[in-house]
Design a binder for these strands. Structure first.
Length: 560
RNA sequence: GCACCGUUAGCUAAGCUGGAUAUAGCGUCGGUCUACGGAACCGAAGGCCAGGAGUUCGAAUCUCUUACGGUGCACCA
């Protein structure tokens, strides 16, 4: 049940609706003060009474009942305690009944949300700079699905541009079939890095690359065949990582997919009189909006990123009729998104307001920024493998007899990588360090998984009885119950704010509360009349943590 | 120069639409301790919430401003 709502309906303040009161209800800093608090300060002026007096008067008007067990007036706050037995019964029965669906809803029924994330570049290996978009997008995708939305995951492949001319040039000069077949994407990357190194000495290489790219565009069979091969290799390589991270897409329509869909955008811009010539290029002037112009066509007549993105947005609207379209892309591209969103708005697309740039902070190394061209990158595959290895070593040491250690080590190691990327607000920059990712203590996924393993271990020794008494919960139990009851709200606000970190932090909060409970209260040896309840509480905790972690793409081993 | 973002304990961070003594983890020091899994639990030390001004009964939170840091600003994506 909704306690806030229940309480709000019983607070009689003249001229203030239950809805407004509900919004004002807060949670006191210390549970001993109460479960909910109503601050009376802002009514002092209207009612011409002191907040303390208002609280006292309201208190007199609210009788305790089977839900509200106590009302008190303290320093202008009206504090409420709710019946813990009621809280326990309601929360536990709901979680155990709904199971894997606890926290889900039909909030988004009938609505479609497109999510553009990960967007790998062909022939470039996945490095830790791609982790955020992939893992954030993947989590949001699952969260929205969980809330009943029709989510469309789009991997907007970076498969268009002169860099592919460079790649073909490098391959022709220094590569061969065997080399690339054996070395895969890393071999391609080395060719690419070498091209840049040599092009610094010999600028003629750049001309050659441009010529090759032109041939791709013109449909030259040989060049396109090579390019398709590079594309296949990249997707195959990256799929390994997507499998580990539990990432899925419904569409792989990338930049090249839109190469024949840009002309109509250009025509429309021209028709609407938005396109003007400037310094030889075709632009949309955005000075009135405090932005530099959005370049639509270069002076040589070729298209740009913004043009393709607009074509893609229009295509997506037409194809999916989305209610929202999210772009999970680093904040460096902030201006670019503001520009092309504005141009679409100027074109009269009323749905331009539904385009959202979900910006996140950048990842750098302790030595500074990463650069694929210069070759100083940390490959995601290496990071994941190191984490899995470390997990394996620890399992081997702590629990040598564990079955399927490899599988468990994978869940633990991969979980650490995902969790590390999702634990903080997405906008914050991250300095990557192995020490941080490989830390398995404290506020980490490993701590949460360990908590699950403890709960699962208890439950493997005793089942939750079909019916059980609910005693007056102690503080540790009550705190845990309150946290469990919050899960549906947490999922909703994570979706609203596009912040999977809310869920990650929630997991740690629940785990901490469970561990406190676990330490202070015996479960299996509890006296009759308490044991069933504690088993149910344990089962409910495990269920909620499973649900929460699965939204992040993290698995829960039974034992570890 | 202009724009956007950030600045909270030694380090890494929470703090939702302003509300009661600012919250965790790591690290440090001390304790629980022979267990329903110690990858745990408890306690201590550690803070002019970058500086200043304003709005308000009340500001880490809102506004303005300064400083520092990051990012972006015309034919790359």
């Amino acid at each position: 049940m909704d306690y806030k709502r229940y309480i709000a309906e019983r607070i009689p303040v003249e001229g203030v609706s239950a809805n407004e009161i509900c919004d004002l209800l807060a949670v006191p800093p210390d549970p001993s003060m109460g479960d909910y608090a109503f601050p009376c300060f802002r009514f002092a002026k209207i009612l011409r009474k002191s907040p303390v007096a208002i609280a006292e008067e309201l208190k007199a008007k609210i009788p305790a009942d089977e839900v509200i067990s106590e009302v008190s007036a303290v320093n202008g706050y009206l504090n409420f305690k709710v019946s813990k037995v009621g809280l326990a019964e309601g929360t536990l029965s709901r979680i155990l009944k709904e199971g894997a669906n606890y926290g889900s809803s039909d909030l988004g029924a009938g609505k479609t949300i497109c999510l553009d994330y990960s967007s790998v570049n062909i022939a470039k290996p996945f490095h830790i700079g791609h982790l955020s978009t992939t893992v954030l997008g993947g989590a949001l995708y699952r969260i929205f699905k969980y809330l009943g939305y029709n989510a469309v995951g789009i991997n907007h492949l970076g498969d268009y541009g002169t860099q592919f001319g460079k790649l073909i040039s490098a391959y022709r000069r220094w590569g061969n079939r065997e080399l690339v077949e054996q070395g895969g994407i890393r071999a391609l990357n080395e060719l690419y890095v070498r091209f840049h190194r040599e092009a610094e000495e010999d600028p003629a290489l750049d001309d050659e690359a441009r010529a090759y790219f032109k041939r791709i565009e013109e449909g030259d069979a040989e060049c396109n065949e090579l390019f398709e091969w590079f594309k296949r290799l990249t997707l195959k390589d990256v799929q390994k990582i997507y499998d580990l991270l539990d990432i899925h897409f419904d569409s792989y329509a990338g930049e090249s997919f839109y190469s024949d869909k840009m002309q109509s955008v250009i025509d429309e811009l021209r028709e609407k009189g938005l396109l003007v010539e400037s310094r030889g290029a075709q632009i949309v002037d955005l000075e009135a909006y405090g932005m530099p112009p959005c370049i639509i066509l270069k002076s040589d007549g070729s298209s740009l990123y913004a043009t393709r993105d607009m074509a893609a947005a229009i295509y997506r609207k037409k194809t999916y009729d989305f209610d929202k379209c999210l772009y999970v892309v680093a904040y460096q591209q902030n201006l670019h998104f503001r520009q092309f969103f504005k141009v679409l708005e100027l074109m009269g697309k009323e749905w331009a307001k539904d385009l959202v740039h979900v910006a996140y902070g950048m990842v750098s190394l302790e030595e500074g920024a990463m650069s694929t061209r210069k070759g100083n990158v940390v490959f995601l595959e290496d990071v994941i493998n190191k984490c899995i290895e470390k997990a394996y070593r620890i399992i081997d040491e702590k629990n040598p007899s564990l079955e399927n250690k490899e599988k468990v080590a994978e869940q633990v190691g991969v979980g650490a990588v995902i969790f590390g990327a999702l634990y903080n607000n997405k906008i914050k920059d991250i300095t990557f360090s192995y020490d941080k990712v490989l830390n398995f203590e404290g506020e980490t996924s490993v701590y949460v998984q360990y908590t699950c393993a403890r709960a699962a271990s208890v439950l493997s020794r005793a089942e939750v009885p079909a019916s059980y008494e609910v005693p007056q919960p102690c503080d540790e139990e009550a705190e845990l119950l309150k946290a469990l009851a919050e899960f549906p709200d947490t999922v909703r606000s994570a979706a609203e704010k596009y912040e999977p970190s809310y869920i990650a932090r929630y997991c740690v909060d629940v785990a901490q509360k469970f561990n406190k409970f676990y330490f202070d209260c015996k479960i299996l040896q509890a006296e009759e009349g308490v044991r069933g309840f504690r088993l149910a509480l344990t089962a409910a905790t495990l269920q909620v943590l499973r649900n929460a972690l699965s939204l992040l793409g993290i698995g829960v081993p039974e034992k570890m």
